[in-house]
Design a protein around this nucleic acid. Structure first.
Lengths: 319, 319
DNA sequence: TTGTACGCGTTATCAA
DNA sequence: TTGATAACGCGTACAA
């Protein structure tokens, strides 16, 4: 492997000059520059990036922590991050955690060890305090509404939009409303739960714990939900479903079982993914790709900020 | 940032001894070992991985090239890779190419620059020769049937399984069979096309170019296909669809349009994803996760091998 | 405009 | 069992 020293020898210049040429620094004569470039060409030289990293203390590598990359929600977030990463010439290191804390710690560890410059955590299991401990080693940004901390955040106001959707259903005549969610823990889920509780309280509705169904992630989970509500004595007449995938699975399942939508069951999905448009599902649009882009920018520049992005209800045929 | 030198000073030993302790090498007394460990603890020391990389010439980073990470086919492949990566303590660097060659070259570049140890290319646009040029810099493995080269491969025999599926449809009484595919280029696509041509030749069927539909990737593309065939004078009576997602989209669309499956249109999907099971879609099972695992293993150990994994037809309700 | 010399943090070699 | 010291390859004060 030829290195910068070899090049210097070949071109008859110093290593500094070689380095200058390689990094487009000023103050180097056309003549020597060409000599170096020539040497690069004939020697098939390529920088050893690790040496650059060691020398500069930076890696142009950004970590991305997410539970599953095969879920459209996170895939879209990732897409936004990846777009900006391309633009800024950053590479991404993926940490697929399956919501296990140890995998999250690995990512934080890499930040500590300077293998990545910064870290985007799309969803987490570990404590906020654990994250804060690692802040001295590089920027960490989160995708949840916890303003006023030492970490930057990009988020949508899940409390507000959840409440809005619930009110919408209520004014459409529904008073038996349930909701489906991925996991019960996590900031976003807690926000939704508290919106739900505030809603039933406001309208004096009973809080039925079986109206809240968790572990809903994928298309095929929609069937599970339909089965569940069919077994209930008084099933909900409307469901807020925090993923369009699951909502689509429910719509498909309902068609198979001849359950009429929205007459027998109204459904509001989340994200406004292509599948929702195609299946004409009423949904809450979440600007996932924009959120990804924003997360990236916060992570690169490292300045502290909290940014709320808008979500909005899109009326279609399932309510 | 405290470093190994500081530790040495603190513990009253040499840097060599510190390094030995840190890497669990033998020949260090219990006493000194404890002294070092103590120093590590109180100084909150963490290795600078870049220095390790520079020194060892390795990174424990593996590159993964794929067109889109939000497609279930690649997401499953990635899942298999990620599982093994976790086991072998490797991290993954993701290159989402959108099938642009320049992004692929970036990955190869990183291999050259020693930022990654090895590279898995799940699907490519660039020439095989371009890949071979980069082979001296580290193992590169491919996910396609091009045996006998200097690169390792893991693949299923798409020619064979495609032919098998076509025969299956033929013997079910279909002689107007079409197929849907992602892109037309690429080894896998060419294999399928040649299986299709051999099939129509064998049974003396006409080759109709509009029976081959490309750009079919996602659920929502299923609708596009149905629209297309509905406009044909003599639409196909059966379709091989190289993604369960698209097949699911088609089934959904057919339900909306009251097209009876399999009577008016028979469908065979690909991959055997959960959605296929749920929607009772006949499909070709591809062991994607296993393929991912295998790709990883080939990439870490760097030995040259070509491994064919089995695919099989799963009969369900759409034929 | 150019070059020398050192630092980055670690591992590996070799002598003791 | 230990420790000096030389790599690893690059960037950059600082001097010229």
């Amino acid at each position: 492997m030829t290195n910068i020293k070899d090049l210097a020898k070949m071109a008859g210049v110093s290593v500094t000059t070689v380095s200058r040429v390689l990094n487009n620094h000023p103050y180097v004569s056309e003549e020597k520059k060409n000599a170096v470039l020539e040497a690069v060409k004939i020697s098939n030289y390529h920088k050893n990036i690790n040496a650059v990293h060691l020398s500069t203390g930076k890696t142009s590598l950004m970590g991305v922590v997410l539970p599953f990359s095969d879920h459209p929600y996170f895939a879209l977030l990732l897409k936004g991050i990846a777009k900006k990463a391309l633009e800024y010439n950053y590479k991404l290191v993926l940490f697929q955690t399956d919501y296990t804390e140890s995998r999250e710690l690995e990512a934080l560890q890499m930040l500590k060890q300077k293998q990545i410059d910064s870290l985007i955590i799309c969803s987490r299991t570990c404590d906020l305090s654990t994250i804060e401990e690692h802040l001295p080693y590089g920027p960490i940004v989160l995708c949840e509404n916890i303003k006023g901390n030492k970490v930057s955040t990009t988020f949508v106001n899940h409390y507000k939009i959840f409440l809005e959707a619930l009110e919408y259903l209520y004014h459409k005549g529904h008073n038996k409303i349930g909701y489906c969610i991925g996991r019960r823990s996590g900031t976003n889920s807690r926000e939704r739960e508290s919106a739900y509780r505030d809603f039933v309280k406001k309208y004096n509705l009973p809080y039925k714990s079986d109206y809240v169904m968790d572990e809903c992630y994928y298309f095929e989970d929609g069937e599970k939900v339909i089965k569940q509500i069919q077994e209930m004595d008084t099933p909900p007449s409307a469901l807020l479903v925090t993923s369009d995938q699951v909502a689509a699975g429910m719509v498909t399942c309902c068609k198979n079982r001849r359950i009429s939508i929205p007459d027998e069951l109204a459904i509001i999905g989340f994200d406004n993914q292509p599948i929702a448009k195609m299946m004409n599902i009423t949904t809450i649009e979440i600007p996932l790709e924009d959120m990804g882009k924003n997360l990236f920018l916060q992570a690169v520049n490292g300045e502290l900020s909290d940014e709320e992005l808008p979500a909005k209800l899109i009326e279609r045929g399932t309510v």
